[in-house]
């Protein structure tokens, strides 16, 4: 069951989108998110759809991977669609069952919202498929770095350190959990059967060793960090410098053109 969790979905290949600066990618993701929400009509949303389709093609990530992500949130899409189908009372009534009226307005609204969710998910997937978790944490740290001017320097550093260590230890801890589970199963532990209380009780032999080993990891890691002159981030610099390239600026321009057309359509229609 644990091995199904894939941490980070990075898809290794070398596309224009992969090569973009991760900070730019995060910022543009936010911009696109905002404009997807700003779009009031189909015209605006269709422009965004066109834009996102082009990006997907540029990422060289197989389309089926995006569909896989959509599939996992399919229940949410269906749920919102159904609610909205019968929520709006505008337009021509198509048919009526009991108290539920299905109107053209309702259909329009349901399709509109479903499309919006789909676009949001796909844009999010573009970021995670084309950026390594490391680059993501790095970018978040740097994007947050202006916060240090308002006295949150320590916060920014600690947050970044936590993300780095979490990234590093998640695979280790998953592997360890699997090992401990197997070891207890070999001693006859029954993890698959029983009612909820029995199942929770059956987890104790796994959680206690896992907790103990996490504490050990933490203790030893702290010593190792101290041995490498770690001093709570005081005076720390980074080896990697992120530099913006022409493609980064260009992508901003393209993104803004598409996004602003949403506003234009909002005003015109």
């Amino acid at each position: 069951m644990l091995k199904d969790i894939t941490f980070g979905q990075y898809y290794r290949c070398n596309s224009i989108i992969h090569r973009l600066d991760p900070r730019i990618k995060i910022l543009l993701l936010i911009v696109v998110f905002i404009f997807i929400f700003l779009a009031q009509g189909f015209a605006g949303l269709l422009v965004m759809t066109l834009f996102i389709t082009i990006i997907i093609l540029l990422t060289k990530v197989p389309i089926k991977l995006f569909l896989k992500n959509l599939k996992s949130i399919l229940p949410i899409i269906i749920f919102t669609t159904l609610i909205n189908l019968f929520y709006s009372k505008d337009g021509i009534v198509l048919f009526e069952i009991w108290k539920l009226k299905l109107t053209t307005g309702g259909v329009e609204r349901a399709v509109f919202l479903a499309l919006r969710i789909i676009l949001l998910i796909i844009v999010g997937s573009v970021l995670t498929y084309t950026t390594t978790p490391n680059d993501l944490t790095d970018a978040i740290e740097r994007l947050l770095s202006p916060l240090k001017f308002i006295g949150l320097k320590r916060f920014v550093h600690v947050l970044a350190m936590m993300m780095t260590i979490a990234l590093r230890f998640i695979p280790t801890l998953i592997e360890e959990t699997e090992k401990i589970m197997n070891a207890q199963k070999a001693r006859g532990a029954n993890l698959e059967e029983g009612n909820i209380f029995e199942r929770i009780k059956a987890l104790i032999p796994i959680l206690i060793p896992l907790l103990i080993s996490s504490v050990r990891h933490a203790y030893e890691l702290a010593e190792a960090m101290e041995c490498r002159c770690y001093n709570g981030g005081e005076g720390r610099v980074r080896m990697k410098k992120l530099r913006l390239h022409i493609s980064d600026y260009l992508s901003c321009v393209v993104c803004l053109i598409f996004s602003s057309s949403v506003v234009v359509f909002n005003i015109l229609i």
Partner: peptide, 25 residues
């Protein structure tokens, strides 16, 4: 089956209870 570094699977309060875990199961 005894895994590598089996001491990492110990969890009970006492040695007796830990040894008894398998037979109890």
């Amino acid at each position: 089956l005894v895994f590598q570094y089996p001491e990492y699977q110990l969890f009970e309060e006492t040695v007796y209870m830990d040894i008894a875990y398998g037979p109890k199961n």
